[in-house]
Structure formats: structure tokens, C-alpha cells
Design a protein around this nucleic acid. Structure first.
Length: 508
DNA sequence: AAAAAAC
């Protein structure tokens, strides 16, 4: 099968040819003809299967006739992350180069003015993340009742990220008479239910990933002490023939730490996570794609969907918390039939997570040792991360006692100095200048604070989610806490002791 | 144990 047999127009075909493609992927081959006929499509496919072009190509063709009116976009594509949205925009630019389609990319983290201007000019293709779309809609910057084609991409990921209430709201604003394309990598019942609600008599198109990661990705794991993980990573980076790699961390904090550490050791590493300013995210990804940065330390913002061609390696600096994420992460390499290598650095506490991954992928990940680094072993049972902090006493008790008689490094002398100054100036010392630390709340005050914390109204989005859940299982009686406040609530709301500089574990 | 997405 070649592209010209799918029914696409000459301009689109020319753009495809100029890009150097001749053969459609299975998902494109199956989906494009139906989309061109105006049918709804339910696509079960992951990124890397050519799914994006599977909907952008026929959409360009469909939208070629007709013109958009100001503030009345003609099509809408919803994406879970900003990077994915930008990627789809690129696809429209590449294949729509011989059409004059107006496109707007509505994502957070960027100024409104440019996006509003585009809407005013009229857009044929609107690509958006849900938050910014709703924001702009509520500000009255657009109408959604002229949408002819709706695409919901990565639906299962939207579900994971709690976007479904937003998606339902957006869909409720669209005309009933429209074409809907719905894509998801997996089809759990919840997603199936949504598809039933959004689609009319859809054609189902399912493609397996080109090759399951276990075939093209060589996997290995090292098990070391927590404090040796960076060393282990450096060793792997030096001994492996790394062309370019993602290095995944579980926390944004650690993304920054690992990136700095690598840079300090002379590696060419950038960082990517959701708390970075958008321009930084875009810029870093661009540098990485160009090869100016060879290592990208990232959070799971990059775990799915991002289509960076030809990663030679993926490193998991942390074992992912959810086994499916392991599959998504290592799936960034070994794409399109190429070989890739994936290394996971595990710590002694990760036994459970590793077992869950092995169960999911139905095989064990081979363990390798690192020269000059002692291998660790997995802890038995629940470890210190078990339910109520077995193994390590909860913070609080020791620190509280210590605060009375132990000067806290740096702060205490300075505070004394300031108190003296206040005395000289003959004015009452400000709170931070007072000798004694502010009084600790009594047990009862803490309980009261915790209660009011727990009762406070959750933010809007959470409230919506909760309401939906309540609707779903309304036959379940709601049981309150009564007068009893469980210990974990109090613990969660207790003010955290400030970091105390020195190593307190020696003293307690 | 987290991350993502609106200001």
C-alpha cells in the first residue's frame, strides 16, 4: 500500500513526498480512508505507530475546503501535555505546508495575547491542552459551536492525569453533529465508556505497537545503595556507547539534582520537568532534538508520546512507581525497529516495584553488577516505606526536644545578634529576633489545625472529580470519621520540622 | 513515594 491509494489530495501527498515518506504505517492505512469518509474512528494505538499523521493528514484534506470565521475554530485536538500538543502542531505544519490553514496552539505557560490574536483571526485547527482551552473559552475568546472535527488523543493518559471531567465539559460545548476521532494506547472499561459517549457508530482501528519493547530494547538493572545511584549512572554513561538518552527520575526535585550532578562531572545534560518555565521546556527539547544536548534528565512528563527520533538509551535513575510507566519510559528507545538499551538503577527499597514490573512484562530484568560498586540487595517485606514508617521513627519527636537546647546551625547566632541590635535600638524585638523559638503548638492546637485543614474545601477541580466519583458509586453509603480523627490525618497536617543542618540521626 | 495541567 502506498500513500497515493488512500484518497488524500495532491497537496498533502506532495508534502508527504517532500518529507520522504512513501508507505503509510498500519494505523494510517486503516484510519485515513475512514476519516476521509467522515466516519468516527476509535483508534487503539500508541505513539510511534504513526498515529499523529493518521489524523493530521486526512484532517488537512477535510479542512482544505471552507474557511474559518473569527473566534470560531473548525477543528479541535486535545492533548494531555504541552509538548505533545506542540508535536501535533509541527505535524500540521509539515503536512499542511501547501495549504493555507490557520492553526493555533493553545497551551499553558505562554502569554494569552498571541493565542487570543490567532483566535481572532479565525483558526481551522485548534490544538490545545484542556486547562488553557477552558480558560480561554471562559474568558469569551472563542466559541466552540463550529467545531466540525474533534480529536481526543492519548485518552488513557488523560484519564491518568485526571483530565476526564475537563474533557467531558469541553465535549459538552461542542455541536452534536461533528466527526470525532478518539485515540488511546489502552482500552480499560472507563475509556471504553467514554468512547461510547463521544463517538457515533465508530470504526475501530487497532494496531499493535511496531514491536514490543522486549524485542528491540535490551534491558538491564543495577541494584545499589541509594547514595550510590549517581555514581552508578555515571559509570553506565561512561561504559555504554550513548548517543543520546533520556534519564528518568520520579521526582522533579531529583531531576534538578541529577542534572546538576551530571553537569558537574562534565556530561552534556539538560533537564525537563513540568515546573520549568514553558520557554525553557521548549528550548531544552529543541536542543536535545538537535543533538546539542545528549542527555536529558526528565520527569514522567517525557515518559509517553514524545517522539524524539532515535534514542540510543533510556536510563531509569529511579524505578517508576507504576509498572506501566516502565514500559512507556523504555519505549522511548528501540523505536521503529531500531535497537535500544534501557538501564534501570534500583535501590534496596525498590523490590516491590521491580517485582511489579517483572509481573507486567512477564520476564525478569537481568541484573548486572558495576565494577567498583558494591551491589545491594532488596529489603525484605515492606521496608521503611511500609504503611506507618516501620524502621525509622517519624520525624518530629526528636527534633522537638532538640530545638529547646540545641542551637540550629547558622540561624541561632544570627538571631541572637539581631535581638541585641533590637535592644540597642530600644524597640521590642521582632518575632524572628526573639531569643526563643516561637512556641510549639500544643497537642490540642495541632489537632484542631489538622481538623480544619482536613475540612477545608478542596480546589475546584478536585471537587469536580470527587462529585463524579460520588455519582458513580452512589449506592455506597458515605461513612464519616465522627469524632475520631485518624492518626494519619494529624500527621499529614502537622507542621514539618525545619531541616536542621547537622546530622541528627547521630544524636537521637 | 509522583507527575501532569490554568492563572
Amino acid at each position: 500500500m502506498i500513500f497515493s491509494e488512500l484518497g488524500l489530495g495532491p497537496e498533502v501527498l506532495r508534502a508527504i513526498e517532500e518529507k520522504g515518506y512513501t508507505q503509510p504505517t498500519p494505523i494510517q492505512e486503516q484510519a485515513i480512508p475512514w476519516v476521509l469518509q467522515g466516519r468516527d474512528v476509535l483508534g487503539c494505538a500508541q505513539t510511534g505507530t504513526g498515529k499523529t499523521a493518521g489524523f493530521t493528514l486526512p484532517m488537512i484534506d477535510i479542512l482544505a475546503s471552507g474557511r474559518a470565521r473569527a473566534r470560531m475554530p473548525r477543528s479541535l485536538i486535545l492533548e494531555p501535555t504541552r509538548e505533545l500538543a506542540a508535536q501535533v502542531a509541527e505535524s500540521f505544519e509539515t503536512y499542511g505546508k501547501h495549504h493555507k490553514l490557520n492553526m493555533a496552539l493553545l497551551i499553558g505557560g505562554e502569554t494569552f495575547t498571541e493565542q487570543v490574536k490567532k483566535l481572532d483571526r479565525g483558526v481551522d485547527v485548534l490544538i490545545a491542552t484542556p486547562g488553557r482551552l477552558i480558560d480561554l473559552f471562559e474568558r469569551g475568546n472563542m466559541m466552540l459551536n463550529d467545531i466540525k472535527v474533534l480529536v481526543i488523543d492519548e485518552a488513557d493518559r488523560m484519564l491518568d492525569m485526571g483530565f476526564i471531567p475537563d474533557i467531558e465539559r469541553i465535549v459538552s460545548l461542542l455541536p452534536k453533529n461533528r466527526q470525532t476521532l478518539f485515540f488511546s494506547a489502552t482500552m480499560p472499561p472507563e475509556i471504553r465508556r467514554l468512547a461510547d459517549a463521544f463517538l457515533q457508530n465508530p470504526r475501530e482501528v487497532t494496531v499493535a505497537p511496531p514491536a514490543s519493547p522486549s524485542e528491540t530494547v535490551t534491558q538491564a538493572m543495577v541494584l545499589v545503595q541509594e547514595q550510590d545511584k549517581r555514581k552508578a549512572l555515571r559509570h553506565l554513561l561512561r561504559t555504554e556507547d550513548v548517543k543520546n538518552a533520556f534519564i528518568f527520575c520520579n521526582r522533579k526535585r531529583d531531576v534538578a539534582v541529577v542534572q546538576k550532578s551530571l553537569e558537574g562531572h562534565g556530561f552534556n545534560a539538560g533537564a525537563l520537568h513540568g515546573d520549568m518555565p514553558q520557554h525553557k521546556r521548549t528550548e531544552t527539547l529543541e536542543l536535545f532534538k538537535r543533538g546539542d544536548i545528549t542527555l536529558l534528565v526528565c520527569s514522567d512528563v517525557a515518559a509517553r508520546g514524545l517522539d524524539v527520533q532515535g534514542l540510543s538509551h533510556v536510563f531509569n535513575f529511579d524505578v517508576p512507581l507504576h509498572a506501566e510507566d516502565y514500559v512507556h519510559r523504555i519505549g522511548r528507545t528501540g523505536r521503529a525497529g531500531r535497537m535500544g538499551r534501557a538501564f534501570t538503577i534500583a535501590g534496596p527499597e525498590d523490590g516491590k516495584l521491580v517485582a511489579a514490573i517483572a509481573r507486567l512484562i512477564k520476564r525478569d530484568i537481568p541484573m548486572i553488577a558495576i565494577d567498583g560498586l558494591e551491589s545491594a540487595t532488596f529489603e525484605e517485606g515492606e521496608g521503611r516505606r511500609g504503611r506507618f514508617g516501620r524502621g525509622r521513627p517519624p520525624r518530629g519527636g526528636d527534633e522537638r526536644r532538640g530545638a529547646e537546647d540545641r542551637p540550629r546551625r547558622d540561624e541561632r547566632p544570627r538571631r541572637e545578634e539581631r535581638a541585641e541590635r533590637a535592644e540597642r535600638d530600644d524597640r521590642p524585638p521582632r518575632r524572628e529576633e526573639r531569643e526563643e523559638r516561637p512556641e510549639r503548638p500544643t497537642e490540642r492546637e495541632r489537632d484542631r489545625a489538622a481538623l480544619s485543614e482536613a475540612r477545608r474545601e478542596p480546589p475546584r477541580r478536585d471537587r469536580d472529580r470527587r462529585r463524579r466519583r460520588d455519582e458513580d458509586d452512589d449506592d455506597e453509603p458515605v461513612v464519616g470519621f465522627g469524632d475520631h480523627v485518624p492518626a494519619f490525618l494529624l500527621r499529614a497536617a502537622r507542621p514539618r520540622p525545619e531541616p536542621s543542618g547537622g546530622d541528627t540521626s547521630q544524636e537521637g
